[in-house]
């Protein structure tokens, strides 16, 4: 398998800069809908995405990956923070300005069965972005849709068909074609393969990679386990309970994980080599993900961390650059000075 080697020391253009992003969902109770608390789905997240790369965003289900993606693209209104994209703070844009920005930033969704309108033909679905931005007349739209379908490996003749006639993988391709219609720079892929058969997953990942090469796309690729993003990511961010706990390039992360949570996640991936698999040490995490409505004091991971100390339950560890390009939030991981 030939993997493109990307040099990390070449100057890279920051396409998306996320800073201090928070998304709290208010919890309301009672007749008067009194505000009694918040689900801190995303709690102070910062990272950069470089042009042309794939940033993997990994974490257990419920840790806030989807919310992060949706808040960046303003499906959800951010509670706090900045999302700088093409010199604009998306978090501060008005709705109609944001609408314009959507042409450069797109999203594909996790559930291929819910992400296509069952009452619209493929032509209508994939052509809708062109229609609402008045980018093409009917004839041109047909041509463009045919081209897009070809691009994602679907027969253009099927544009007259309806979503129910397609399999999950094919639907995901249709969703991809829709998101490509406006020629975006960045695509947020929210677990695009998690709902697919294992045999189909690789095909879709390969398609995403080919399109990235061909069209110069940048991806944020969300997944719930590290094995899924290993192949496609250039860098990986590991999320836990609304926060990023570790962020570095892929090879470093898999070779030398620093955060105990990352180590636990990595240890859970089966190794294809039976000999190593036999002796592999697994770090089992105890307990469940705490509720984001009531996160633990101090470090969010302190309730499950095998290396927990007193300080972890008192103070929240800062998210710091431990080595160049390697960030981590743990009291016991210090920059090498």
């Amino acid at each position: 398998m030939a993997e493109a080697v990307k040099t990390s020391d070449a100057p890279q253009e920051v396409l998306l800069h996320v800073e201090g992003l928070k998304k709290y969902f208010p919890i309301r109770r009672g007749v008067f809908q009194r505000h009694v608390g918040d689900v801190k789905a995303v709690d102070d997240v910062s990272f950069d995405v470089y042009r042309g790369e794939t940033l993997g965003l990994v974490g257990e289900s419920g840790c806030g990956k989807t919310t992060t993606g949706r808040t960046i693209i303003r499906i959800y209104e951010p509670t706090a923070g900045h999302v700088i994209f093409k010199d604009q703070d998306l978090a501060a844009l008005r709705a109609n300005e944001m609408r314009e920005m959507r042409r450069s930033m797109q999203m594909i969704f996790q559930d291929p069965y819910a992400s296509l309108n069952p009452r619209m033909s493929v032509l209508k679905i994939v052509g809708e972005p062109l229609e609402v931005f008045h980018l093409a007349n009917k004839e041109e739209r047909r041509e463009r849709v045919a081209h897009l379908l070809q691009l994602v490996g679907l027969n253009p003749d099927f544009m007259v068909r309806y979503p129910h006639e397609f399999s999950g993988g094919q639907r995901q391709r249709i969703g991809l074609a829709r998101s490509l219609a406006l020629n975006p720079d960045l695509i947020i892929c929210d677990e695009p393969i998690s709902a697919l058969d294992v045999s189909i997953q690789a095909q879709v990942v390969n398609l995403l990679e080919d399109l990235q090469q061909e069209l110069g796309l940048t991806y944020i690729f969300i997944a719930h386990d590290l094995s899924m993003v290993r192949h496609i990511s250039d860098r990986v961010a590991v999320m836990y309970l609304g926060k990023i706990v570790e962020l570095t390039d892929r090879d470093t992360l898999y070779a030398k994980p620093l955060h105990p949570y990352t180590q636990a996640l990595l240890s859970a991936i089966p190794v294809p080599d039976p000999v190593i698999e036999e002796t592999r040490q697994r770090i089992l995490l105890e307990g469940d993900l705490p509720s984001p409505a009531n996160p633990p004091k101090g470090c969010n991971f302190s309730t499950r961390c095998p290396q927990v100390q007193d300080i972890c339950e008192q103070e929240e560890p800062p998210f710091i650059e431990v080595e160049p390009g390697h960030l981590c939030a743990c009291h016991f991981v210090k920059p090498a000075t």
Binding site: R70, I73, I75, R99, E100, R102, R103, Q106, M107, F109, Q110, D111, A114, S115, L116, N117, P118, E128, P129, V132, F133, G175, R178, S179, A181, L182
Partner: peptide, 12 residues
């Protein structure tokens, strides 16, 4: 999700 998708592609 298809309604969210419509919002994302800029449908009013």
């Amino acid at each position: 999700e298809y309604v969210l998708a419509a919002r994302v592609i800029g449908v009013k």
